[in-house]
Design a protein around this nucleic acid. Structure first.
Lengths: 128, 128
DNA sequence: GCTTTACTAGTAAGATCTTCGTATATGCCA
DNA sequence: TGGCATATACGAAGATCTTACTAGTAAAGC
């Protein structure tokens, strides 16, 4: 029985974002992406991915040449966990306050604001 | 020279939320609030608050009888840090995706959706 | 087949986080 | 002023996180 994977740590989340972006991949491929933006040993990335497999954050296909890893949960699922977690712990459940913090941290363009409005329209439609 | 306080850990954030809510307080008062919702030793809370003072997350007034602690930064400032941090690390900077995650995790009422819309109006006004 | 190359697994050190027991200082009051 | 109640400080153990080295193994190439 698998159960829910735990909240990923910072380093684990970085690896998950790579897997979501390039799809199922070997440690080598993940390492290539990460080492392009910061120094990181291959064996460090490998170790993380092994731990993540133990935790159930990634699934691995044990191929003869090199194992293939993929995120155990889709991006949206994990994003929902993370957003929900922070929402409760730091914003007393107020989505408005969370959005305000996000917009204050990173100025949004007019286009993005329009997209958010559209999201609200879609979301409200289901429950009127 | 103080510099920016680091991102609070889970336990530290819990204490900050108490301080934001009740204002400057002694360890005793913070512990009372926390122990009402979960078991926690007084000395554990004390230790956290000492560490937080070292980190610059809280400021303390060393009164003779009992020290008075207060959050070093206002709630909004820290919320902005946390939202911005998660936004970059897990949502590639997309406030829309972050909001979507939050709404998926915790259903919002019609009233809250209206509030969010109002926030967008206010926010957009400044930059049109 | 043998050597080189590339991958996994195991081990471990150091940092940080969480938790708590205990020692020590100090104000308060009888 | 001596003792009690309450505070802070100190020390430390155990869990988790981050990082990296190295040994062993298996595939690929010559």
């Amino acid at each position: 029985m698998p159960g829910e994977p735990p909240r990923p740590t910072d380093a684990e989340l970085e690896i998950l974002t790579v897997l979501w972006s390039i799809g199922p991949a070997t440690v080598r491929e993940v390492h290539d992406v990460i080492s392009r933006r910061r120094p990181a040993q291959y064996s460090t990335v490998l170790k993380f991915m092994q731990i993540m497999a133990d935790k159930g954050l990634v699934r691995r296909d044990e191929r003869p040449r090199a194992h293939i890893y993929q995120a155990a949960r889709p991006r949206e699922w994990t994003q929902r966990q993370l957003a929900g977690d922070l929402l409760e712990r730091a914003f007393s459940g107020s989505a408005r306050a969370l959005l305000m913090g996000a917009l204050a941290a990173r100025k949004a363009t007019k286009e993005e604001l329009a997209e958010i409005r559209k999201l609200l329209d879609e979301y409200g439609k289901g429950k009127k």
